[in-house]
Design a protein around this nucleic acid. Structure first.
Length: 492
RNA sequence: CGGGGUGUGGCGCAGUUGGCUAGCGCAUCUGGUUUGGGACCAGAGGGUCGUGUGUUCGAGUCACAUCACCCCGACCA
């Protein structure tokens, strides 16, 4: 029987796409560039949401909700910001449909044109800051720490499942502070929350760093990022946190009276992660057998597959499974008994592997006789037969071990694909092989742009952790003096 | 928006220089045998060949138009 999922090495992008579809995470929708997230995929997203949400709340952030539609005029306030998004906005111009007078279905009623067009939010800074203006008058009102879970729309020219869809789900946090220091500290705190989540929940090693000015968010003074490496060696920006300075406060006139009775503009941050993280999960951990989910995000952590020849065997095994399931669920694990009797065990094994379930238990007549159960772990595909006694404790340890092992594997891969590069000639060929190149950079936008034009590589970040970069050297392209290395890569 | 490609049962595809009743694999349904790594046998159902116009005795096949999707670019917190 042929593998359902293609080999990663042959065509990475096709492998990725097939896996997302076949693992039942999502499908292409009839709407251009949009996707349908299916129940299994959405269950993973829900786990991401609830985990992140709890982490946000521990930092004092509260959830709120702002409108989907943004009046066009709001966009004319912050020039740099609008320039960054103008080319990819969906615009609502009418509010009514009517029957086609010529009988050909439905048309837009030409008389129902909106006085002012509404923009479907590509991000919510503008609508939120116009709202914050009414919320903030005194230093006592600060800080404002809001997050919203919502959808946004960006009419990208080219889309990819999860990584760049026309509509996507995300969270966007928007905070207002009395001082620059406090805002910067918040931006820093949130990027660390993201890194913590990526590393410890997604088992995704990331590098925290600053974006270069070229790669900054439109309207930000500083953009902090977590950068991950996918298995084809490309970089994926997994989350960003922006220090916005007073740009939006000034554009939307958000001032407060400070303790000295003077008017001051507030200082702002915004930060977000999206369903792109689902793409990261697939590309960082997946293998030729399918998805590999970290236990902390797996909608089903343990699946039980009964093996039987007769009805008696079937019910005996299922009875045992029911007891084990109750025990594991009492420990807080999510368990599924696959009692479909139309499918053979081999088919089920393959299917649950495709879906990335971390632990699979199989039990048949042999096990009933000997009081054992077969445990298979998804990350290494190893199978062992163990006594049923003590299974609960064994599963706890095993899930922890799998979580750690997936992270270690991804980390080892990333470290094996980070290398220093000090020669421009070498850089041009090395960068095409994938991976991160640590290179000296003179700090100018011109040099960065030229490197991008010639190689498509960009500065993914100026690292703050994970890799040691502080050292004297000369820019790889211009030869000018440099005090530190930065991460170059080809990105998604 | 440029370059390339693909549209044929639910999915994946074949269909030659136009030709007779449009095929194959998977999936589905029925019956039986199976069941510790993606079962097998027998039978059955399911198609306005993306859409439109044209050429022709005759179009899945040719021409023109049009729409959709995919890949590579350009673009992209």
């Amino acid at each position: 029987m042929a593998k359902e999922v293609t080999n990663r090495a042959e065509n990475y992008s096709q492998w990725y796409n097939d896996l997302a579809l076949k693992a039942d995470l999502a499908e292409q929708s009839a709407v251009r560039g949009c996707m349908v997230i299916k129940p299994y995929g959405y269950a993973i997203w829900e786990k991401m949401q609830s985990t992140l949400d709890a982490m946000f709340k521990r930092t004092g952030v509260q959830n709120a909700y702002f409108p989907l539609f943004i009046p066009k005029s709001f966009f004319s306030r912050e020039a740099e910001h609008v320039a960054g998004f103008a080319k990819e906005c969906a615009v609502v111009t009418h509010h009514r449909l009517m029957n086609d007078p010529e009988g050909k279905g439905v048309i837009v009623d030409p008389d129902a044109r909106l006085e002012e067009e509404l923009i479907v939010r590509p991000t919510s800074e503008t609508i939120i800051w116009s709202t914050y203006k009414n919320w903030i008058t005194s230093w006592r009102d600060l800080p404002v720490l809001c997050n919203q879970w919502c959808n946004v729309v960006r009419w990208e020219m080219r889309t990819r499942l999860f990584l760049r869809t026309a509509e996507f789900l995300w969270q966007e946090g928007h905070t207002a502070h009395a001082t620059s220091q406090e805002a910067e500290a918040k931006a820093n705190e949130m990027v660390n929350v993201y890194a913590d989540f990526a590393r410890n929940v997604m088992a995704l090693p990331v590098i925290i760093g600053h974006k270069s000015p070229n790669e900054r968010f439109a309207g930000a003074l500083d953009t902090l990022t977590i950068e991950a490496m996918m298995q084809d060696g490309k970089a994926l920006q997994a989350g960003t946190s922006h220090f916005l300075g007073q740009n939006f406060a000034k554009s939307f006139d958000v001032q407060f009276t400070n303790k000295e009775g003077k008017q001051e503009y507030v200082w702002a941050t915004s930060w977000g992660v999206s369903t792109r993280l689902m793409g990261a999960l697939i590309m960082a951990h997946g293998d030729d057998n399918g998805l590999v989910l970290p236990p902390k995000l797996a909608p089903i952590q343990v699946v039980m597959v009964p093996i039987y020849k007769t009805d008696e065997e079937r019910s005996a095994v299922l009875d045992k499974f029911a007891v084990l399931k109750a025990e594991l669920e009492a420990q807080g694990h999510s368990v599924r008994i696959d009692d479909r009797d139309t499918l053979r065990p081999g088919f089920k094994f393959a299917e649950w592997e495709l879906k990335g379930v971390p632990v699979r238990l199989a039990m048949g007549a042999r096990d009933l006789a000997s009081g054992t159960v077969e445990i298979a772990r998804r990350d290494t595909l190893e199978k062992t037969t163990v006594p049923i006694e003590g299974l609960g404790a064994r599963i706890i340890a095993l899930l922890d071990d799998i979580q750690q092992n997936i992270y270690d594997k991804a980390l080892a891969f990333r470290n094996a694909n980070i290398r220093k590069c000090d020669s421009w000639e070498e850089f041009k060929t090395e960068i095409q092989k994938g991976g991160f190149l640590l290179c000296h950079w003179d700090g100018t936008a011109e040099t960065e742009q030229k490197i991008k034009d010639e190689t498509k590589a960009t500065i993914r970040c100026i690292p703050m952790d994970s890799v040691v970069c502080e050292e004297e050297g000369t820019d790889i392209y211009s030869g000018k003096p440099s005090h530190r290395r930065v991460v170059f890569a080809i990105s998604y």
